[in-house]
Structures are given as C-alpha cells and as structure tokens.
C-alpha cells in the first residue's frame, strides 16, 4: 500500500513537470529544454522568498508562479521567437534553449552558490496522515491535487476558452490561424508563460516534497519528463498525468520486484515499448493533436 502511494506521488511529480513540457510541445512542436532550469530556478527563488522575504509558502507560490511566467516569456522571446521561420528551427530551438538553460543555471550558482538548499523547516505544515497503514504527507496530497487540478483546469482552458481555441488553432496550423485572426505570437508567448509558470510551481512543490533543492534538480527529472510525455502522448495533457502516474508506479514496481538498480531501465523500457507499439502515446491523437 505504501509503495502504491509512493508510486502515485512520485508519478504526480513527474506529471506536474511534464505538463509544462507537453504544453509547449503540443502548440509549437518544439521541445523547450530550458524547462528544467526554470524548475530549479523557481525552487531557489521560492526558498529565498520564504527564507529572506519572510513570506509564507502560500504567499510565495503565486509570486513564484509569476516569476515562472516571466521566465517563460523570456525563454520564448530569446530562444524561440528569433528562430521562428528558420528551416532548422527544430535543432536550433533545442540548442538555444539548452544555451539559455546553461545561462540560467550559471546565474543561479552565482546567486545561491552550488550547495543544495531547502525550504526552512515549518514553511509547510508537516502534517501526516495514515491511509490504510501507509504514511502520507500533506505535501504529497497537495501535489497530487495540484496536478489533477491543473490538468482539469488546463484542459478546460484549452477546449473552452478563447485563448485555448487560439492555442489549438496555432497547434493545428499557424499560418491558417494567423489568417483567421489569431495573434500567433501572443498565443505562443502565453503558452510559454503558462508552461513555465507550471514548471515553477512544480519546482517549489518538488523541493518541499523531497526537502532539498539543487542546481541539477531539473536535469535529474528531465529525462523522466521526456519519457512521460512520450508515454502519455505528445501534447496531451491528461496523457502527461497518466504517463507520469504510470511511470511512477512502474518504477516502484521495479524497486520491489526487479531490483533498484534497474529502475531507470524500466522507465526507458516502458518508453520504448510505447514508442514501438503506439508511437503517438497512450492518449496522443493520431492526426489531430490536442494542445
């Protein structure tokens, strides 16, 4: 039981991280490899807000959300928009976002040093529950709830709102969207902002959950995030959630039954099987992508 919950909670972290990834991919067909850096940066900024700024965590989270959104705008503006019409935009976008991530991490090291940090004790109530004999912390429940809420909220936004329609139009065909009066640049920028804001929140929650924040924390989860968006289906929001949970459970299963040293092989094995059997991912659409 504990392991099942462990799997679900790890999985919800993966999902939270992957949702931001998949959102940008769904709209732009581009992987934003600066996403992990946003994840780390926001955790550090969040810690500073709580530690030095004296904000409570609940007050810090919205600030971090905005911080992430601003970072997202910067990433879009600096690393992606200039490449828009280039034939090699795919490669170039990967590289430019890697470069930007490198700069971001370097700045973090300058500001905060290379040591690990953590949220000061007590910044989040360390309430614990016992569920069927298993230990569950409040943070974990919050993370799961946030992932679910974000997934539902985003899906609603994408399918029902004007902005969401714009996103889908851009995802479908940017040229046609432009002709139809969608401000493609703005929709793209907003997508990046939302994606990075989600990454930022994920970073903070992650750091609280494991009681540590490190410069490399984004890089450590990046590969899993990539696996999740493939497994769930590129661009599919519910897919990211399900993919994340599936990966979390598979890893826990591997720990229990195969051996802890093979956990990462299991994760990529899952990825491989999915790619071979159902390349569009579990919930990926065949032709028309969801956002």
């Amino acid at each position: 039981m504990q392991q099942l919950l462990n799997g679900i909670f790890i999985g919800s972290i993966y999902a939270l991280f992957a949702i931001g990834f998949t959102l940008v991919f769904g709209i732009l067909d581009r992987l934003n490899l600066a996403h992990p850096a946003v994840f780390a940066a926001s955790a550090f900024v969040g810690i500073e807000l709580v530690e030095r700024g004296g904000l409570s965590l609940w007050a810090a989270l919205p600030v971090v959300f905005v911080f992430g959104a601003v970072l997202g705008l910067v990433i879009e503006r600096v690393a992606f928009r200039p490449l828009k019409n280039r034939a090699d935009a795919h490669f170039a976008g990967l590289i430019s976002s890697i470069a930007l991530a490198g700069m971001l991490i370097a700045v973090l090291q300058w500001r905060y040093g290379p040591d690990t940090r953590r949220f000061p004790p007590g910044s989040f109530p360390d309430t614990r529950f016992e569920v069927f004999g298993a230990q569950v912390t409040l943070v974990q429940v919050v993370i799961l709830a946030v992932s679910l809420a974000l997934m539902v909220g985003l899906t609603y936004m994408v399918t029902r709102t004007r902005l969401g329609r714009g996103m889908r139009a851009v995802a479908e065909n940017p040229t046609a969207a432009r002709v139809l009066g969608v401000n493609v640049d703005r929709v793209t920028a907003v997508t990046f902002a939302i994606s990075s804001a989600l990454g930022a929140v994920a970073g903070v929650l992650f750091a609280i959950n494991v009681n540590t924040a490190q410069l490399g924390m984004g890089a450590a989860i990046e590969l899993k995030g990539l696996a999740v968006i493939i497994v769930g289906g590129m661009g599919s929001l519910p897919g990211a959630l399900i993919g994340g949970l599936l990966l979390g459970l598979a890893e826990v299963f591997a720990v229990q039954h195969i051996g802890s040293s093979w956990v990462n092989v299991i994760a990529f094995g899952l990825l491989f099987v999915i790619l071979l059997l159902r390349p569009q991912g579990l919930l990926g659409a065949r032709k028309v992508r969801e956002v």
Binding site: Q2, Q3, N6, G7, F9, I10, I13, F206, N209, V210, T212, Q214, G216, M217, A219, A220, E251, V252, V255, Q256, S260, S261, V263, N264
Partner: peptide, 16 residues
C-alpha cells in the same frame, strides 16, 4: 538497494 546520485525521492526505496 541502489539509486542514482541525482535522485532525491527515496520513499519507494525506503519502503522497500
């Protein structure tokens, strides 16, 4: 039980 140096969530391993 083994893990990766970049891991930070050990709950599954610890439960094991």
């Amino acid at each position: 039980i083994t893990f990766s140096k970049s891991d930070t969530d050990f709950r599954a391993l610890l439960t094991q």
